[in-house]
Amino acid sequence: MRIVCPFCGERELGEFTCLGDAKPVRPAAGASEDEVFDYVYLRDNIAGEMSEHWYHGGGCRAWLKITRNTLTHEICSVEPAAGAGARQAAR
């Protein structure tokens, strides 16, 4: 697996760390116990294309949102995560 960082270009996997599924959204304060439980502990654990957060810690230190196929390791798309790069965030 090599990842094309939108800021740095194509890099080897060792420069990146995977945080995991990008889908779960932190529930608002005051959310029900069910919602919090679901967010913290349950996973879709998709077999196929999955949207994930990755961190380019060994490079530009930007957070990335990557769509990757968990069956084949094919990387379908890479984009900056929300907030990566101040100018990106301002848009």
């Binding site: 060792g14 995977c18 077999a47 999955m50 990757r68 968990t70 069956l71 390791h73």
Partner: peptide, 16 residues
């Protein structure tokens, strides 16, 4: 390896 996978094969960084 540290990422979700159903591929039954890993990558080079862990091998290293």
């Amino acid at each position: 390896d540290g990422y979700n996978s159903y591929a039954q094969r890993g990558n080079m960084p862990v091998m290293e």
